[in-house]
């Protein structure tokens, strides 16, 4: 019995260790190879000779734009549909349809989204190539995740909070904005971070629509080249492996810091709202 217990325990422990190791090796390998490339000049100057020399400032800027555009589109749509599905409709058909569509959307390969962006947005709607169009494509990929995580979060809020609000004479809108949303925020934020960090790490979805320019994008309607795409070009065309590592390191640092900062914020918020502080 004792032996069996120890065995299962070490089995689970080694799975956990393996996960940790995978993360450590992947990020470690890239950071070790890329960190020496990174200095102020690399971060804040233009690329030279297709990126074999010079910096990645336009790429960082493109990625920052993409974070903002994707967030601005996918957060309201994703959270809004979750609020509608969980609070406003009891029509099973609509609920199942929206759930089904979001499942289908989230299982579509990213390159297909890219192709759709090129065929529909760039050519058919004549929007041309731009960071904005890439943001729309990434939003389409992010919405299902944000919707699914938010919907589950709303469902797990105990009914007693809702009833408590209504019993105070709160309207539906007041109930949602003053009590349900604040309770749901940590969960929703987790979904947002998951969706956005994955979206901005995409090369395939944006390569056909973003224009792949090396210039500094002045506005979101300019063409640009986000970090993952730059990394892809540098590595696949054999331009500069060390700059590819440097770009990858910067991307990892951006994604990790978004994740970390949001985790800290959520923990702090949860402690404050759930009464562990004070």
């Amino acid at each position: 019995m004792k032996l069996k217990q120890n065995l299962t325990k070490s089995l689970f422990a080694s799975s956990a260790a393996f996960t940790l190791l995978a993360l450590g090796i992947v990020t470690g390998f890239i950071v070790v190879n890329g960190i020496h490339v990174i200095d102020w000049e690399f971060l804040f100057s233009l690329p030279k000779d297709s990126g074999s020399d010079g910096g990645i400032f336009p790429m960082i800027l493109s990625t920052v734009y993409l974070i903002l555009i994707t967030g601005a589109i996918s957060i309201p749509v994703g959270v809004g549909s979750a609020v509608y599905i969980s609070q406003y409709t009891s029509n099973e058909k609509i609920i199942n349809l929206v759930r089904f569509i979001s499942q289908v959307l989230s299982s579509v390969p990213s390159i297909v989204f890219g192709l759709f962006g090129l065929a529909f947005l760039v050519f058919f709607l004549k929007m041309g190539w731009s960071i904005f169009v890439a943001g729309i494509v990434l939003s389409l990929m992010a919405i299902p995740t944000i919707f699914q995580v938010s919907e589950v979060t709303f469902q797990t809020i105990p009914e007693i909070y809702k009833e408590g609000c209504y019993a105070m004479g709160a309207s539906k809108w007041q109930t949602i904005t003053t009590v349900l949303l604040p309770i749901a925020i940590p969960g929703i934020l987790t979904g947002i971070i998951l969706a956005i960090t994955r979206a901005i790490s995409e090369a395939a979805a944006v390569m056909y629509v973003v224009g792949s320019s090396l210039d500094i994008p002045i506005s979101i309607f300019d063409t640009g080249r986000p970090l993952p795409l730059h990394l892809y070009v540098l590595a696949s065309e054999g331009i500069s492996m060390s700059n590819a590592y440097g770009t990858a390191t910067v991307l990892i640092i951006i994604v990790l810091s978004i994740t970390l900062i949001s985790n800290i914020t959520v923990n702090h918020y949860q402690k404050r709202i759930m009464g562990c502080l004070n």
Binding site: I160, G164, A167, M168, G169, I273
Partner: peptide, 20 residues
């Protein structure tokens, strides 16, 4: 109904203070 519930308050079986 919203106004009615202002006039007729309710205390529930399980205490449900809002997370504030």
């Amino acid at each position: 109904v919203v106004d009615l519930r202002k006039r007729i308050g309710m205390v529930f079986q399980k205490a449900n203070p809002f997370p504030m």
